[in-house]
Amino acid sequence: MLRVKSPQDLGAGLLFIFIGLVGIYFGKDLTYGSARSMGPGYFPTWLSWIIMGMGGICLFKCFTLDGPPIERIPLRPILCVFAGVLAFGYLIEHIRLEPALVLLVAIATQGRSDTNQKKMLLLAVCMAFASVLIFVVLLGQAMPTWSGDYLSAAFTKLWSLFSSAKGA
């Protein structure tokens, strides 16, 4: 009876074999060519076979050599961070940058139970405006915002005041 001695190697082996299989399967439609005139499928197919072979060795190892267990994967922080990022990506073109950023932080913060929600939201709002200032006003990156034009105008005004004061 086979017994898994190192779960990490089992996981890695299966993952590698999976990637290798995907590489070989989807590389089938590509022209393979020959060594002297390599087609687009030549190098990836070779790579995929080697990756699969490595996965095989990993699998073999997991039954023979002792190894550390896979640490518990806490789902909550992972899901919250991913959900926040996806919400940001989905919503930014609809609700623009500032609300999307606040929402991102609001969702991602749920990944920890010991955070002070009110404080965090206040922080998020401040940082959202700071981001507009840094990325849109100072670095000139094009993003849909609510406050970008106003902040730019204020910044130009301040800058001209500053430079005229320096000149005088």
């Binding site: 961070v81 926040g84 990022v85 996806l86 940001f88 990506g89 989905y90 930014i92 073109e93 940058l97 950023l101 991102l104 932080v105 991602a108 913060t109 965090m120 922080l123 998020a124 940082m127 959202a128 981001s131 990325f135 990156q141 094009a142 993003m143």
Partner: peptide, 22 residues
């Protein structure tokens, strides 16, 4: 929160494509 904002803005602003976040 600042770090995660940086990540998202950085990826989105490079070519304004939401699919990049996915």
């Amino acid at each position: 929160p600042a770090i995660i904002m940086f990540c998202c803005i950085g990826v989105y602003s490079s070519n304004s494509e939401p699919s990049q976040l996915l």
